[in-house]
Amino acid sequence: MISKARISVAAVALVAMSGVGFAASHSQGEFAREIKARQAQMTLNAFNLGILGAMAKGEMEYDAEAAGLAASNLAASSSIWMPTAWPEGSDNASTEGTRALPAIWAGDSDIGAKAQALSEAVAALQTAAGTDLEALRGAIGPVGAACGGCHKAYRAEE
């Protein structure tokens, strides 16, 4: 005969397991697909910046054609305009798996101006990348500043 105590232990275990299952699905969070999509865009930006940066740092030999291609890929990936990947409520206070701050969606948000600053810096980099190594080196700094400008205001620290 099964004791009442055992039944309670089993019940507690079941509840705990379902709780684990719930927590696991919850950690996916709302807007998980949108967050994944916009983070993929950032990954693409970083990949092409990595090629340009490696040349600037001297880790990779400068190649005007490869630099020009990386810069135009960066221009393409950074200008993908997909507001659908940034729905309201997909901030770090409302869901999981993101460091996007609610300030992005606030009334006084200047995220549009920040995006414009990035697009200008990337356009200058695109011109410089295929010119020569010195020009490439000089043009990466402003792109970094534009990235930082947005991350400072709108991304939570780790």
Binding site: N45, A46, F47, L49, G50, G53, A56, K57, G58, E59, I140, G141, V143, G144, A145, C147, G148, G149, H151, K152, R155, A156, E157
Partner: peptide
């Protein structure tokens, strides 16, 4: 050392993530 110096110049980490928060000010 080269990666650290480059981070202080551009804000880019070796993975080409960028500095944020208070450190973005420092990089400026």
């Amino acid at each position: 050392a080269e990666d650290i110096a480059y981070y202080l110049e551009t804000g880019f980490t070796p993975d080409f993530d960028s500095a944020g928060g208070a450190m973005a000010d420092v990089i400026q």
